[in-house]
Simulated assay, not measured.
Amino acid sequence: MRTDIDKGANLAILELKGPILDANVWSESIQTLSKDSAIKGVLLVVDSPGGALSPSVELYEEIKRLNQKKPIVAYAEGVMASGSYYASLGVHSIYANKGALVGSIGVIFEGLDASELMAKIGIKPQVLKAGAYKEVGTFTRQWAAHEKEELDNLIQRQYQMFVQDVCQERKIPCKNYKDYAEGRIFDASSALSLGLIDSIGTKSDAKKALVRIAGIKEGEESWRGKSKNFDDYLSQVSHSLSQIFANIILRSVP
């Protein structure tokens, strides 16, 4: 993560943009902000369709810890969905552009069945395994019934974890999860009425709220920007290649 520092900065901008495939891309910046006593508040600018489950949860935990030290206001600039919504749950408050898309609270496991293609080109898999579920998610054949059941149980547990964290952080009833979860994605107005965000406005509105929450004077405002460079994108792409056939992912609708 490239860091551009303004001398005397007391607020910071942290951008969460693009697919979330590797939490390390952002973790370094979060740790830097946590240790910087001059920074009194952080604006988290989000425009991401989500990504893999583990790094999304990792970012949620790290952002939540940072918010306990200094206030964070998240701003949905375009898309704050699935993994990026999960990552944003632990902030002080969430603002959204009136044209933003928010939500997609759900979990999906994707895999391929390439058995017909392999048969056409004369490829036959040979497998030695120990454990009835060791080949779960294979792309060389259709999944067996017990494998599908195991994967479904796993996905349901991860889904419930996501929903529980939404309930806890947003203070909305878990019993009403079908209204705001189930993978549904909402416009900003609907997200506000459901309690998924706190306010609709511009980035400037979110920045003003952060200044107020951080308890600093408007005249003291100075910004330190955070943005991804080309090397960061290469790191994410490299990481994602190892998960291409099957992965538990959080993402918005196509």
Rank of each mutant, 00 (worst) to 15 (best):
P55V: 04
V237F: 08
A96K: 00
R141D: 03
E77S: 15
R170G: 14
G41T: 03
S82G: 04
S88P: 06
Q243E: 09
I13R: 11
I30F: 01
S242Y: 08
E218H: 14
S204L: 11
S115K: 02
N67M: 07
D36Y: 00
D232N: 02
P19S: 11
I39N: 02
G183M: 01
D113Q: 05
V25W: 02
L44C: 04
A74D: 04
K148T: 15
I248H: 13
P55K: 00
K171F: 12
A74L: 07
I155P: 07
V57G: 11
A76C: 14
S240W: 15
L21K: 09
T138Y: 12
F186A: 01
S189A: 08
S27I: 07
G8T: 06
M80Q: 06
K35R: 00
V166Q: 10
F109Y: 11
A52G: 06
P55S: 00
G83V: 02
K124Y: 11
P49A: 02
I94P: 08
L53A: 08
I108M: 08
P173H: 04
I5P: 09
A74N: 09
S93F: 00
E77I: 02
G215L: 07
G83E: 03
A23S: 14
Y95P: 10
K98Q: 08
Y85E: 04
T138E: 07
L151G: 13
L59W: 08
Y75P: 13
S54H: 10
S235C: 04
Y233I: 03
L14W: 06
E28W: 12
G219C: 09
E221P: 13
L44D: 00
K208C: 10
K35Q: 08
K98N: 06
L53F: 15
Q158T: 14
H92N: 10
V42A: 11
L210G: 13
G50D: 01
Q168F: 11
S84D: 06
S54A: 12
Q31T: 14
S240N: 12
I39Y: 01
K203D: 13
A181F: 11
V91M: 06
I63M: 02
G137N: 01
A52I: 09
K64T: 15
Q236T: 00
